[in-house]
Design a protein around this nucleic acid. Structure first.
Lengths: 142, 142
DNA sequence: TTTGCAATTGAGTCTAAGTTTCAACTACAA
DNA sequence: TTGTAGTTGAAACTTAGACTCAATTGCAAA
């Protein structure tokens, strides 16, 4: 199943519709291969000669998160960022000075999560592991 | 050095002042022994018969974070929460349904952080490890 | 003690992300 | 064809937090 099928069957299942606007947002969200914000989608959709309202973009992003195709990631800023859930799970090093985001993977984390969730009988659906500080270059300028 | 001394010497060091308002915010922030938000401080300060403006509270919180006495934690909501940095480092299980926050500690995480930071020559100043999902009770109601 | 200056404060204004509202529109099933 | 429920966009709204600025205050040097 590709993204489109996943999303449309997710929608159908709960009596929602797979509309042209929702398809547009889906396509655009997956044409970006890094973290993005709602505003990015708005701009790119417009640049490609289409038009989807802000409200619909936010509504669709919420659906894409619900159906598990996207995940919300939180950097220092006051607005949300999104990323694809496909591909290996990764975490982030966030530079406070230049804003650079370095991704890393670590399989120990998965085991920690399992252990902790078992202990507290917690049902995980996603996680966030972010180390905040200064990248190699910026650390020199402190 | 207690909190007051840490804060006031942090301020003096950079030519800032340890004012009554800043002291008020410090005291109030440390009289709460769990996560809190800016609004909580505003209310509590007023309840104790004092008065510190919203602007000053936000400004002082930023200073307390800078000097390392407080840390910003991010739960699902659109506004910030804060916690004391003193005491053992811990992480959070966040329930999406009832909003409950369960704290846990895990020493493996510290080692993961060290390993990752060394590899990327990253200078860490804080971290976030949050597992988002459903607590034992809420998992039943899904 | 006085003086001058830079830091600080509070009230109010502003910003921007995201949400809500609602009337018009649309897909689909009966 | 019609009824119903989902969807859309425009605009208004919400809210945390940042900014502005005139008035105030703390402190260091005279």
């Amino acid at each position: 199943m590709n993204k489109k099928e996943i999303f449309s069957s997710f929608l159908k299942l709960r009596g929602f519709r797979f509309t042209p606007q929702r398809e547009r947002v889906l396509e655009e969200a997956f044409s970006i291969h890094k973290h993005f914000e709602a505003e990015d989608l708005l701009v790119r959709i417009r640049q490609n000669g289409h038009r989807v309202s802000k409200a619909t973009i936010y509504r669709t992003l919420a659906l894409l998160i619900q159906c598990g195709l996207l995940r919300e990631v939180i950097f220092g800023e006051r607005h949300s960022h999104y990323e694809h859930t496909l591909g290996p799970k990764h975490h982030h090093l966030i530079c406070l000075r230049c804003g650079k985001i370095i991704e890393f993977t670590d399989e120990t984390i998965e085991r920690v999560q399992q252990r902790v969730c078992e202990k507290h009988r917690f049902e995980p659906s996603q996680r966030r592991f972010e180390i905040i500080g200064y990248c190699e270059n910026c650390a020199k300028h402190l």
